[in-house]
Amino acid sequence: MTTPIVRVNGLTKSFQNRRVIDDLSFEIHRGQTYGFLGPNGAGKSTTIRMMLSLVRPDAGDIELFGKSLGAAGQKVLQGVGALVEEADFYEYLSARKNLRLLATMEGVPEKRIEEVITQVGLTEWADEPVKRYSHGMKQRLGIAQALLPSPEFLILDEPTTGLDPRGMKEVRELIQSLHHRGLTIFLSSHLLNEVEQICSAVAIIHRGKLITSGTMDELIRETDLFVTEVHANPQDTAREILADLSFVRHLEQDDSVLKLNIASEDVPRMNAALVESGVEVSAIIPRTRLEDYFLEITEDSREHPE
């Protein structure tokens, strides 16, 4: 296994004697789009702030590109682009001037400013003061500033918050296109479908503690958070066949539906096995229990406020 781009190890942080991050550990590998899921107040932004040295951990360490952030300091952030929460800029300056301020800090050439403005679709508005921008445009400018230093690793903290559905779609498509260009992306979100659509791996935190982490396939295989529904006839035969398939886990029957855990790449094999045995398959629907799970832990938060 190659050295992870990010290694978070035993991270702990308290504010005014209240522990907000509790012994948090996870790893992000090159090329991953890593989802960081948790309800509001779970500690996602605090973790991100620690990854960017905005907040100092009480204990634990963060390694970026194999170097300790605590020991090597701010220089380690070379190669990292970040949008932390809302995109805040100097409102009285244009997008271009805001980006130029950041570019001059790191000696980024002027040409790169134009590239990122084009990349996020702000060309027409680039010379307007940011105070005239909509929320969505500010978020896109936020992503532009994160992309400015041509990072290898991009941290996006709730980038679609406050956007309308169209804006959300645009930002998600942009994130996917960045991933296809080879960027490793860390996406914090409280939106399950967003993480499911975009991410190849995920860590779920609640009250500052890691609940689970791994690749989507690992989570599918090893947890019951992802479920595939199979509508088949006759159901009993289908159940017997599925029970014999080694790649099918946690098989259960719920009324007229069979529910099971299966990796997405194994679905065609399962379908073939059923059809070859004379079973009529009317639908195979991937579903997630993440939502139920989230509702559960969110409800738990309400009942036991911190």
Partner: peptide
């Protein structure tokens, strides 16, 4: 208060 400090401080330049 404007939040702009956090963008600057995420750059590889010492505080």
């Amino acid at each position: 208060s404007a939040g702009t400090l956090r963008i600057y401080l995420t750059r590889p330049i010492s505080r």
